[in-house]
């Protein structure tokens, strides 16, 4: 666990499995807020829209219910898909990150191009002991490359491994 060599093993790794419940909680909170906001909008619409046809008035709550169920389903299901399609590989020369369920991206960042690295974790991340690795390069489109859902300690060790070693002036 402590030696940094086990990070740069050149193997494809999945994220920490705890990312699934973590994202479900985050997605659930988002879906709940969205549902409440839509509910308020629905009530306002029903109260204010006296001139609406009867069938429209009947349909609106059904539409709301459908949306709530749908966003709940997405919040429950999406983290699994995301987990399945995200992997990373760290080796001596850099890191390769694969993401995207439908639109897939494989991005390679050489170690020598990394400018600086953040490891951040929010309140939900911390509950599950997870962290997000954020790589910064001098590039334009991919100046910032994120990898969320790593075990926090592991994210720190990847950072240690990728950070440019002093003498080699990468900047």
């Amino acid at each position: 666990m402590s030696e940094p060599d086990d990070i740069a093993d050149g193997q494809d790794h999945s994220l920490d499995p705890r990312v699934i419940p973590m994202q479900r909680v985050a997605g659930g909170i988002f879906a709940a807020i969205q549902s409440v906001a839509l509910l308020v909008a629905l009530i306002v619409a029903l109260l204010a829209g006296d001139d609406l046809d009867g069938w429209v008035r009947g349909l609106l709550p059904v539409a709301w219910l459908l949306l709530v169920v749908l966003s709940g389903l997405v919040a429950y299901r999406w983290p699994v898909l995301h987990y399945r399609h995200t992997s990373y590989r760290v080796d001596e020369v850099g890191i390769e990150i694969r993401t995207g369920v439908y639109w897939r991206v494989v991005i390679n960042v050489p170690r020598s191009r990394v400018q600086h690295i953040d490891v951040s974790n929010g309140p939900i991340d911390r509950r599950y002991g997870l962290g997000t690795l954020v790589l910064y390069t001098a590039g334009t489109d991919h100046a910032k490359v994120e990898l969320a859902g790593l075990e926090h300690g592991r994210a720190l060790r990847i950072r240690e491994h990728l950070l440019p070693s002093g003498a080699d002036d990468a900047v």
Binding site: G100, Y102, W103, R113, T137, T140
Partner: peptide
């Protein structure tokens, strides 16, 4: 001068 290389695949 290459900063990073990405391979994109849409559906």
């Amino acid at each position: 001068k290459i900063q990073s290389v990405a391979l994109h695949q849409s559906p």
